[in-house]
C-alpha cells in the first residue's frame, strides 16, 4: 500500500469522507432509477397481455404492436411526423451548413452577434416559439398545416446544425484547401472533394439530430399545426382516455427509433474526431 500512496491519499480528508461518499452514491442511484424506471415500465407494459397495465407482468405478447400497426389514425400520424421530420432535416441541414461557413470563416460584419442570433433559438422556450409563430402566421393570413409545423421546427433545429457544423469547421485545417488549390482544384472542386467530405460526418449528425428533435416535438407542433396530428399529438389525444397498451407500444417504437438515430449520429461524429486526432499526431 505504501508505494501506491499518491498525493490524494496524503491530503487532509474529512473523517466522514467514507459516509459522504456512500450517501452520494445512494442519491445518484436514486436519481438514475427515477429517470429510467418509468421508461422501463413503459416498455414492459407494451408487451403485457392485460389491457389495464400493472404488476405483476402476466406474460409476453406482441398483440399491442399488431394493433398499433393496424390503426389507421396512427398511420396518418406517423406519416405526418416522418414527412415533417425529413423535410425539416433537409432544410435545417442546408441552411445550417451554409450559415456555419461565414460564422466560422468570417467575411461578415458583427460575427459575434450573428453567431448569437443564429444559436439563440436553442435557449428560447418552445411555448414562446410556438406562440410567436402562431401570432405571426395568423397575421400573415397563412393557413395552418404541416408546412407551418415545418417552419416551426426549423426555428429550433437549424441552430443545432449550425453549432455542430461550425464546431467541425473550426478544427478544419485550411492548409488542405491551399494544397488542393496548389494541385489545380477550383474553389468548387475543393469544396466538393476536400471540404464537404471532411465535414460530412457533422452535416449528417446535424441532420439526424434534427430528425430526432422534430419527431418528438410537442409544444411548437401544438401551436402551429392545423387539423392533422403528429405522433406526439396523437399520443396526447389518446391519453385523454387513459394510457392504453397500444400507446405504450407506440412510445416504445419511438424510443427505439430515436435512440438508433441518435446513436448513428454519435458514431458519425466520433469518426470525424478520429480523423482529426490522427492528423494532429
Amino acid at each position: 500500500m505504501a508505494n501506491r500512496a499518491s498525493a490524494l491519499d496524503t491530503m487532509p480528508v474529512s473523517p466522514l469522507a467514507q459516509q459522504t461518499r456512500g450517501c452520494l452514491s445512494v442519491v445518484a442511484g436514486a436519481t438514475l432509477v427515477f429517470l429510467y424506471l418509468p421508461i422501463v415500465f413503459l416498455v414492459l407494459f407494451s408487451i403485457e397481455p392485460a389491457d389495464t397495465p400493472g404488476f405483476p407482468i402476466t406474460g409476453i405478447t406482441l398483440h399491442w404492436y399488431e394493433k398499433m400497426l393496424a390503426d389507421s389514425a396512427i398511420h396518418s400520424a406517423l406519416f405526418n411526423s416522418v414527412v415533417v421530420a425529413v423535410v425539416v432535416a433537409l432544410i435545417a441541414t442546408t441552411i445550417g451548413t451554409m450559415a456555419a461557413f461565414p460564422l466560422v470563416r468570417g467575411g461578415i460584419r458583427f460575427p459575434g452577434a450573428a453567431r448569437i442570433l443564429f444559436t439563440l433559438p436553442i435557449m428560447i422556450p418552445g411555448v414562446l416559439i410556438g406562440l410567436g409563430l402562431l401570432v405571426f402566421i395568423t397575421l400573415l393570413g397563412i393557413k395552418l398545416g404541416l408546412h407551418t409545423v415545418i417552419a416551426g421546427h426549423l426555428v429550433f433545429t437549424t441552430p443545432f446544425v449550425v453549432l455542430i457544423v461550425a464546431a467541425r469547421l473550426q478544427g478544419f485545417d485550411r492548409r488542405l484547401e491551399w494544397a488542393a488549390a496548389d494541385l489545380g482544384a477550383s474553389n468548387r472542386q475543393t469544396l466538393r472533394h476536400i471540404v464537404l467530405p471532411l465535414i460530412a460526418p457533422a452535416i449528417i449528425a446535424g441532420a439526424l439530430l434534427s430528425v430526432t428533435l422534430s419527431i418528438d416535438e410537442f409544444v411548437v407542433t401544438f401551436f402551429t399545426i392545423g387539423p392533422q396530428l403528429t405522433l406526439p399529438l396523437y399520443i396526447i389525444t389518446q391519453i385523454k382516455f387513459g394510457v392504453t397498451p397500444e400507446v405504450n407500444a407506440l412510445a416504445t417504437v419511438i424510443l427505439v427509433v430515436t435512440l438508433t438515430v441518435f446513436g448513428v449520429g454519435s458514431v458519425l461524429l466520433g469518426t470525424g474526431r478520429r480523423f482529426r486526432r490522427k492528423d494532429a499526431a
Binding site: 491551399w178 494544397a179 471532411l198
Partner: peptide, 20 residues
C-alpha cells in the same frame, strides 16, 4: 496568376495530405 496557373507545386510544411 493564381497558384494553379503557374506550373509550380508546393510541398507544405505540415504536408497537408488529405486525411480522407
Amino acid at each position: 496568376l493564381p497558384p494553379h496557373k503557374r506550373n509550380v507545386n508546393t510541398v507544405f510544411q505540415n504536408y497537408a495530405l488529405f486525411p480522407h
